[in-house]
């Protein structure tokens, strides 16, 4: 018990780094993902193609590789970033691609009749998107977005490769130093706590959206 109490302060410090990355990624990647999802179904062909290419690149390569590339790769061409910023940039780029795909499929799942009804009532394209389509999309994409959020909690551990002291790296160092597995168990509890909170949050959101079918 005393050992765990001793472990906690550094682990909580690592945890705050994890949380920072988590919220930063989510807050930036969500709006970008929505915009990209809309662009994916755009009638502007070049925009659509570019987005397809983007999604292909960032879903088609490991996040770990992207992390290394953003930090070390850009360094070789003279672009030196803070390690945490590089990590956050890679995460935003990667998660935007996944979220864009989710929003694209959500937008495409809205029945053609909804667009036609809005159209004959005289709504503009923009009004149709913001008042008719997106509100229905949000309800439909909640489960896959919930999935991505849980993934993001766990993926955050990957930034250890840039020697950033997030939760898992702190735990691993303690394991090596003290020759005990206990820090890993403590880290697992931290992760499970976070995922439990987000799982409940999404459950609550889904019931909140249950007022219509």
């Amino acid at each position: 018990m005393d050992y765990i109490m001793m472990l906690l302060p550094p682990m909580i410090k690592g945890w705050t780094v994890t949380l920072q990355l988590f919220f930063l990624t989510l807050c930036v990647a969500l709006p970008i993902g929505i915009a990209m999802g809309i662009a994916r179904v755009s009638r502007l062909k070049p925009l659509k193609w570019f987005m397809e290419f983007y999604v292909w690149i960032f879903r088609g390569t490991p996040l770990l590789l992207q992390l290394l590339f953003v930090y070390f790769g850009l360094m070789t061409v003279g672009l030196r970033m803070e390690r945490f910023n590089a990590a956050a940039l890679a995460f935003v780029l990667n998660y935007s691609a996944y979220l864009a795909e989710i929003f694209r499929s959500g937008i495409q799942s809205i029945e053609k009749g909804q667009y036609e009804a809005a159209d004959v009532l005289g709504l503009t394209r923009f009004q149709t998107m913001t008042k008719i389509v997106l509100p229905q999309v949000f309800k439909r994409v909640l489960p896959p977005i919930g999935n991505e959020v849980i993934n993001l909690v766990k993926d955050s551990a990957l930034i250890y490769v840039l020697a950033i002291s997030e939760l898992l790296r702190v735990a691993k160092n303690a394991v090596m130093r003290d020759e005990t597995f206990i820090p890993f168990i403590v880290a697992a509890v931290f992760y499970l706590f976070m995922t439990a909170v987000f799982q409940q949050f999404f459950k609550w959101l889904e019931t909140k959206y249950n007022y219509y079918h």
């Binding site: 029945e111 009749g113 036609e116 009804a117 008719i132």
Partner: peptide
């Protein structure tokens, strides 16, 4: 329309 196309939300 045949399928009403009301706005469900």
């Amino acid at each position: 329309f045949q399928n009403f196309n009301l706005f469900p939300h």
